[in-house]
Amino acid sequence: MALDKREEDTWVLLTDEQLSINDATSFVVCSSTGAVSVFVGTTRDLFEGKKVVKLQYEAYTPMAVKKIKKVCQDIRVKWPVHRIAVLHRLGVVSVSEASVIIAISSIHRQEAIEAVHYCIDMLKAQVPIWKKELYEDGNETWKENKECWWAVSST
């Protein structure tokens, strides 16, 4: 299952296929680009002493795409960026594979770097994509992003 929304200056992809850093960076580069900033989130093999063998991602896809596009619009208001690519895996993601790739281009590096940082934070906080860690011992845990408003305890 894949949802690929590619426009002239914004590419949003949710897919169960492996992600390509080359595709993301190729999309964002244009003739006036002086900087490309890229974030790649990968599946790690250990969490709090537990051996992780894979992750599983699920999403409410129509809402996820809508929220990602809103984050991209917000980025364009805050920084003079050229192009934005937000690619996210769904389904099973093995250790060392990319779960998310964000690539943003601009004239200067500072804008691209700040925009990528903002994008990953907002993606985790606002976009309905959920992650389950599957462990070597057969146990599994749905993970809660600490950035989400609903994850903040009201004590």
Rank of each mutant, 00 (worst) to 15 (best):
M1K: 05
M1N: 10
L3V: 15
R6G: 06
E7H: 08
E7N: 05
T10G: 01
V12W: 04
L13I: 11
L13T: 04
D16T: 13
E17K: 12
L19D: 06
N22P: 04
S26Q: 12
F27G: 09
V28P: 03
V29L: 09
V29H: 07
C30M: 07
S31V: 08
S31F: 07
S32Y: 09
T33W: 01
A35Y: 04
A35T: 09
V38W: 02
G41K: 07
T42I: 13
R44M: 05
L46N: 15
F47V: 14
F47H: 14
E48R: 14
E48M: 10
G49Q: 03
K51D: 15
K51H: 14
V52C: 01
V53R: 08
K54P: 02
Q56A: 05
Y57F: 11
E58R: 06
A59C: 08
Y60E: 03
T61S: 12
T61F: 00
P62K: 07
M63D: 10
M63T: 14
A64W: 03
A64C: 06
K66R: 14
K66N: 13
I68Q: 03
I68A: 05
K69T: 14
K70S: 15
C72R: 05
I75L: 11
R76I: 02
V77H: 13
V77D: 14
K78N: 11
V81E: 01
V81H: 02
R83S: 06
I84M: 03
I84G: 01
V86Y: 01
V86F: 06
H88A: 02
H88R: 02
H88S: 10
R89C: 09
L90Y: 02
G91C: 04
G91L: 02
G91Q: 05
V93K: 01
V93A: 02
S94V: 00
S94T: 07
S94C: 00
S94A: 11
V95G: 04
E97H: 14
A98Y: 01
V100Q: 00
V100A: 01
I104R: 00
R109Y: 07
R109I: 11
Q110I: 13
Q110K: 15
I113K: 06
E114F: 10
A115E: 04
V116K: 02
V116A: 02
C119Y: 00
D121F: 00
D121H: 05
M122I: 08
M122S: 13
L123M: 03
K124T: 07
Q126R: 15
P128T: 11
I129Q: 02
W130L: 04
W130S: 04
K131H: 07
E133D: 10
E133H: 09
L134A: 02
E136R: 06
D137S: 09
N139E: 15
T141K: 15
T141F: 09
T141R: 13
W142P: 04
K143G: 10
E144G: 07
K146L: 13
E147M: 08
C148T: 13
W149K: 15
W150F: 10
W150D: 11
W150T: 13
S153C: 09
S154E: 04
S154W: 07
T155Y: 08
